[in-house]
Amino acid sequence: MFSGFMMNTWIVASIVALVAGVVGFFTVLRGSAFVAHAVPQGAFAGAAAASLLGMNTLLGLGVFALAAGLGIGVLGRSGRHDVVTALALVVMLGLGALFLSRSVEYAPEIYSLLFGEVLGVSRSQVAPTSVLALVCIAGVLLVYRPLMTVSVVPEIAEARGLSVYRMEMLFLVLVALATSMTVPVVGALLMFSLMIGPAAAARSLTDRPLVAMTLSVVLALLTVWLAIAASYLSNWPVGFFVGALGALSYGMARGWLFLRKPLTRSGAITPGGALGT
């Protein structure tokens, strides 16, 4: 399980989990799960285009992920955000369908792009993934506070001179970056699970923002490691385990919150006991 070619898998998958945990934290905080779902799927069309033109898959993924993210941001200014996200998503997928229909060798390729081919990570993927991950994490840490302010109290942030629109665009670029590096490894459909599951579970476990982000990374790492091990042993697709573990950790965290709630409730000094429903 830890032989030569599997080492690449472990390294790349860990980097992917790190990024998914960090970006996923803000995705969940901002309630942007749909965007986090749409951008990777849109990027999938880019991979199809790249393979049709015989270019580097990573380039196709990056360009399409950026296009999807920025398109959603721009159109979202005048239209409903969820509607625009849905439309951007299906247009990208429509293009993907077109490119795939033109290409000759599609069946296994499309399957691995959608659902991940974690056991086939090559040595050449390690370097670009690491670089993209560094850029992505540095980006998140750099804008941590303004992004937090804009996500939590947008009206006040505007009054303090922070542009909500610009921060939103920046966030979408970060999601796009995270996407283009993770899609070849966990696949477009499951990149999303890796971003949402751990982050959603983490926020049920702690009240502190930075601790929640760290926990989200830890849970993402655990999810990926367990999924790879299970996939290696059973030969079942890694995506299945990522999705199942994501739902499982979320369910367990909700259960924990449910058990813990009465404690915080009685410990709270709230006159009138008026807690949010």
């Binding site: 309630g31 499951l190 079942w236 697709p237 990522v242």
Partner: peptide, 23 residues
């Protein structure tokens, strides 16, 4: 949207498995 996402993620995981069985 998080709740939707979790159901979706689990569903996608299952379809990865089914498609694997298909092939």
């Amino acid at each position: 949207d998080v709740a939707t996402g979790i159901v979706l993620g689990a569903g996608l995981g299952l379809s990865a498995l089914f498609l694997y069985f298909d092939t």
